[in-house]
Design a protein around this nucleic acid. Structure first.
Lengths: 192, 192
DNA sequence: GAATTTTGTCTAAAATTTAGACACACTGTC
DNA sequence: GACAGTGTGTCTAAATTTTAGACAAAATTC
């Protein structure tokens, strides 16, 4: 389990590092959110702990929301648990809308935080699976659509090849499954 | 656009009714959440405005979360905008996790509320489409799996029927598309 | 290494597919 | 209403494909 901590407060970073060290395999921490994209591309981060208030001029969390959005752009985005010192309800709702898995206010309870991180990772895993399902749906639909344009012979050959693959190349078995003569299967394979 | 208001405060109900009357076609309001399942089964509600605090003994919103969960059980659930007098951040986050589209605290701004309702309905529409895509993926995968067990003749006939349907029953056109003789198509149809 | 299965090939009969032709029904146009 | 154009249902005879059965060689299974 790899965790990425983004918080501009060094004290928070070291505390989190200490608390989470036993629970997670790999912890990276930084005060600069600009390294997020590079880290996400490289390492397979499971969860990001993202602070909402970086520079003290902007305390409305808009910076944090910006980076949350960047993290969640990818369909394989990691889980994100947002953390903030100023528990504003509108910010929490916006963060959740943008796909954050959970929202924690400082000061936090250590055990609760760990539990929330685990749950966030689980939750995120589910949404990733859903995303995959959606992509698969698109692909299958395309295939279905293509098939409708195919010649009868093309459909026959495609199915034959699939069954042969399924039978590990055993032509006799494939012919039996297809309910055609073995020689017929030979002829068809010769033709194509 | 049909809105369902669930709030135990009659004053809130009538106020909301008044505010939203111009904006939405059909508004139903009730103080009793127990009618929710029946209403959802019957009418095609687009959005539920759900109060979190019904009886004054439980102010933690757990009642509201319970009903939110009931509403969101169905894959075709309406949008839900949660409303509460006690803006507790944990409650907001839980509501969002359970699939609420937005979270509003009393007292609200009328224009903002209306905008949030519209956005919630849009947002919900998208998730419904995603749900449909997931269901379709499951169905198509099943079909793909079934096809692999099919006889060559069965696959042929299934494809033929699909193409005929696609050609609106025009057999000549279907035969041409399938790249087989018209009479062959006749013969195959007679056999099955 | 013996037994079983699969492969590649052949034959001749059975079945299917094909092009072409014909009458008929249906459609929209003039 | 006549007309051209298209789809349907049916027929024939030739071309093609499929089939069962047989056989030896190769591959596999135990």
């Amino acid at each position: 389990m790899k965790i990425l901590i983004i918080d501009d407060n060094p004290a928070v970073r070291s505390t989190l590092n200490l608390i989470l060290a036993d629970e997670f395999d790999d912890i990276t921490a930084s005060g600069d959110p600009r390294i997020i994209p590079a880290l996400l591309r490289n390492g397979d981060i499971d969860c990001v702990i993202l602070d909402m208030n970086f520079n003290s001029n902007k305390l409305d969390g808009s910076d944090g929301l910006f980076w949350l959005e960047r993290i969640k752009e990818s369909p394989n985005a990691p889980a994100v648990v947002v953390i903030t010192a100023f528990g504003e309800i509108g910010l929490a709702v916006e963060a959740m809308k943008l796909g954050a898995e959970d929202f924690v206010t400082k000061p936090w309870n250590n055990d609760e935080l760990i539990e929330k991180l685990h749950k966030a990772i689980d939750r995120n895993k589910k949404t990733r699976i859903e995303n995959k399902a959606i992509n698969k749906a698109v692909a299958l639909e395309q295939r279905e659509h293509d098939r409708q344009k195919m010649t009868l012979d093309e459909v026959k050959m495609q199915h034959i090849k699939e069954v042969i693959t399924q039978c590990d190349g055993n032509l006799s078995a494939a012919a039996e499954r297809l309910n055609i003569n073995r020689q017929t299967l030979y002829n068809l394979l010769k033709k194509s």
